[in-house]
Design a binder for these strands. Structure first.
Lengths: 205, 205
DNA sequence: TGTACATCAGTGAACGCGCGTTCACTGATGTAC
DNA sequence: TGTACATCAGTGAACGCGCGTTCACTGATGTAC
């Protein structure tokens, strides 16, 4: 937050950061253009030098979020090392870790009402993130006999749904709600059981 | 919508219905007290005869939603008949069916920002719904050898998370988004693989 | 059955507020000569 | 190095709007006698 006089320096990013802070603190509804401007130490009118309007700020935040998300997933995937299974699990954990470490981005991406199809850029960024999960799923699927192999997209969709559900239902600290399970454990055990169901983890039957 | 003159008859329910319609159409943000009043054919001020304010309407809708949700889940569970497994699967399907048939209720319950702990009534209603899923999970868990049986709450949480994730990521028709999978198939296959992982459906290993 | 009256669900005008957005402007910066 | 000027990122005042909420009110309903 280095602000020296009339010109801001990097107002665009400062506005996105302010928006993320507001979203994190008060939910997607609690974000207004005016307040984001105030957060960045600037008049509401100045916002229009960098964004088309209120929604455009959230969209920009979501776009950044998808890029970061992809990076984290990709880093967790680690080119499928040390094993397809370990890499896949790590990717699942990274999903939850992202949601917990960057709630503002997560909300902008999934809860703000911004459609992935708002701009081609966002659609592309979201597709890249999905791509990482599907790559991880493919590598893992290769270990299942071809005739009983489910489409990789199907089970990456399962893992996405499970992860998203865990985030939304169990990783949001609604005041007063005390969840009986640690979200990380919940996701880990859920994916474990699921992978056993696919025959990718040995059962003792 | 039978409105005969000065007195409305059942304004309270009419307001809830108007709120649900608005929420369904425009999302949780697109709901305003004034517009709900207009939808019910009444002055905004009249709302205060029945509700404490804007949020109170959503809370009332959510409460009704939880009651209906519980009924549907309970009906699908059907006292565990014809089998624990079939009853459990039916309950999972009912989760998704509720979200698709009553999107307004679903949004009020899960996406509106209304906390389950807002009132004891809502908390209780939500707990009842969860109770049905846990009962179904318990009956099923009884078929797993006791020493390797996971807590019923754990795997009912898994199924809730998977179901919720499927609803949020794949059952919302964001304009322009074309999902490769039918949500019902996605949930069904996901639960199937999961149950196989628990050893509740025979594998051929 | 008819009248007086209490109850209560609605009206409609008014309010203050913060919002998003616009506009003509001005101060700072960087560049050409 | 110094000056003139173009560029552009910000200001600040103003706007119209719809919001939630309040208030004194009034019309409709139901009940006591």
């Amino acid at each position: 937050m280095k602000k020296q006089g009339y010109h801001h320096g990097n107002l665009r990013q400062a506005l996105i950061d302010a928006a993320l802070a507001l979203i994190t603190e008060k939910g997607p509804t609690g974000f207004t253009l005016s307040e984001a401007a105030k957060g960045a130490g600037v008049t509401p009118a100045a916002v229009y030098r960098h964004f088309e309007g209120r929604e455009d700020i959230i969209a920009a935040a979501a776009l950044q979020g998808y890029a970061l998300f992809t990076d984290l997933l990709d880093h967790a995937y680690n080119n499928g090392q040390p094993s397809a299974l370990a890499a896949f699990s790590a990717t699942g954990r990274a999903y939850l870790a992202f949601a917990r470490r960057y709630p503002g981005y997560y909300i902008a991406m999934f809860e703000s009402g911004i459609s992935v199809n708002r701009t081609p850029e966002i659609a592309h960024a979201a597709a890249r993130a999905r791509g990482v999960l599907e790559t991880a799923a493919s590598a893992l699927a290769a270990r299942i006999p071809q005739d009983k192999r489910p489409p990789a997209r199907l089970f990456s969709a399962h893992v996405m749904a499970l992860s998203h559900g865990v985030v939304e239902l169990f990783a949001r600290n609604s005041p007063g709600t005390n969840h009986p399970f640690d979200p990380e454990d919940l996701l880990e055990s859920g994916i474990g059981i699921y992978l056993r169901g696919l025959g990718l983890i040995p059962t003792d039957c």
